[in-house]
Simulated scan of single mutants.
Amino acid sequence: MPKPKGSLLRRGRYSEFGRLYLLTTVTQHRLPLFLDLYRARTVIHQLRLAEQQNSCQSLAWVVMPDHIHWLIELKDIPLGTLMRHFKARSSRMLDIASPVWQAGYHDHALRREEDVLHVARYIIANPIRAGLVRKVGDYPHWDAIWL
């Protein structure tokens, strides 16, 4: 059975250990599952678990109502495996009857000349741009290593 194309890295890309990636994944049908505090915290726990297992170093992340943005440095496993594990564990822990995540994810490998702090600020400001809060400190579901 062929894998869905959404589970692959973008054409011509490969998973590179030590590389910085901006990852985005969306809930099935863009349902706002993470408006619920327990569900949002469950996903956050899985982001942190990936770091504890030395799969990646999380530089910044935000859990939005229907998606996540996650800036990482990839460590000991391929990017596809990291995302597969994250999605499977978070789905299992959320214990929702329907699928939690859409197939696949978006990855952007940061180039050396890209400003990592600028990317992190973009991630963290997502709730402001979405109109959920007026200032970053009012949104509870984000973190960055620079704080």
Rank of each mutant, 00 (worst) to 15 (best):
115 D>Q: 05
121 R>D: 08
14 Y>Q: 10
107 D>M: 00
118 H>E: 14
47 L>M: 04
25 T>N: 01
59 L>D: 01
35 L>Q: 15
87 K>M: 11
19 R>G: 10
7 S>K: 11
3 K>G: 03
2 P>Q: 13
96 I>K: 05
36 D>A: 03
45 H>I: 09
10 R>T: 15
98 S>M: 15
19 R>T: 03
62 V>C: 01
76 D>F: 03
23 L>D: 04
131 G>K: 11
126 N>V: 06
43 V>Y: 00
63 V>A: 02
66 D>Q: 06
65 P>S: 08
55 S>R: 15
47 L>K: 03
41 R>C: 09
30 R>E: 13
55 S>Q: 15
69 H>S: 05
59 L>A: 09
73 E>H: 06
15 S>Y: 02
75 K>Y: 11
53 Q>R: 15
58 S>H: 11
12 G>C: 04
95 D>V: 08
47 L>I: 14
95 D>T: 12
68 I>L: 14
26 V>Y: 11
82 L>Y: 02
83 M>I: 15
147 L>D: 13
21 Y>M: 07
68 I>C: 08
112 R>H: 12
128 I>W: 10
63 V>F: 05
127 P>F: 10
83 M>E: 02
112 R>S: 12
86 F>C: 09
127 P>D: 06
139 Y>T: 00
24 T>S: 06
129 R>S: 12
137 G>R: 08
138 D>L: 04
131 G>T: 06
49 L>P: 04
77 I>F: 02
84 R>T: 11
44 I>T: 00
114 E>V: 06
78 P>M: 05
43 V>M: 00
67 H>G: 03
31 L>R: 04
111 R>H: 13
6 G>S: 04
49 L>M: 15
67 H>D: 06
42 T>S: 09
87 K>H: 11
111 R>W: 11
3 K>P: 00
42 T>C: 09
137 G>D: 12
26 V>E: 08
126 N>K: 03
73 E>V: 05
60 A>G: 04
